[in-house]
């Protein structure tokens, strides 16, 4: 076999291994494509309890946006962590927003009452909010910095540590 062919095969195998290593070391809960790193769009949606809810854009606050539904079992699993972290930051510069995704307002209202969701929650009636954020499936949580840029997303049920780490890194960045 000629030397150049052997070299090409070695380089091709090395490139394949590198691609596989890079692909597998990425956490499936943290897909950094689409809207991550881009400014969030200011949205005005209908609140579940009535009235309007505006979020997104530059607010000078850290915003945590959580997409959920009453039919979503993993959403119920992550909810206690969300409630605990919300209580921890409720008097601070951190804002929580819930977005009801592909669900009826009645079911959403029952869900927030039954699960202790006291942060403002809006209804994504036609999927436009989920589309603008690039939601794949719920539960999905987005971290928006004080500058209004979407700094990160978590796909799947989120835990308390991930929530606190996400919030604290953005608070530290905002204070610089």
């Amino acid at each position: 076999m000629p030397r150049w062919l052997r070299l090409t095969i070695v380089v091709a195998i090395a490139a394949l291994v590198m691609v596989l290593v890079l692909a597998f070391r990425r956490a499936p809960t943290d897909i950094r494509t689409g809207t991550v790193g881009k400014p969030s769009v200011a949205m005005n949606v209908t609140r579940l309890e009535g009235g309007d809810l505006t979020f997104g854009g530059r607010t000078d606050k850290v915003v945590v946006v959580n997409f959920f539904a009453s039919w979503c079992v993993p959403c119920k699993e992550e909810n206690p962590a969300l409630v605990r972290v919300y209580e921890r930051y409720r008097a601070s510069d951190v804002v929580f927003v819930g977005v009801l995704y592909q669900d009826s307002p009645e079911n959403g209202l029952k869900y927030i009452h039954d699960n202790g969701v006291t942060w403002p929650t809006g209804i994504d009636t036609d999927g436009r909010i989920a589309f603008s954020y690039g939601v794949f499936g719920i539960p999905e949580t987005y971290f928006i910095g004080a500058d209004g840029v979407i700094a990160g997303r978590h796909i799947g049920p989120i835990d308390e540590t991930t929530l606190v780490n996400g919030i604290e890194s953005l608070r530290a960045k905002a204070q610089k």
Partner: peptide, 10 residues
């Protein structure tokens, strides 16, 4: 799926 239907609407 419902997501695809919403995307078709968009």
């Amino acid at each position: 799926s419902e997501s695809a239907r919403q995307m078709r609407d968009i």
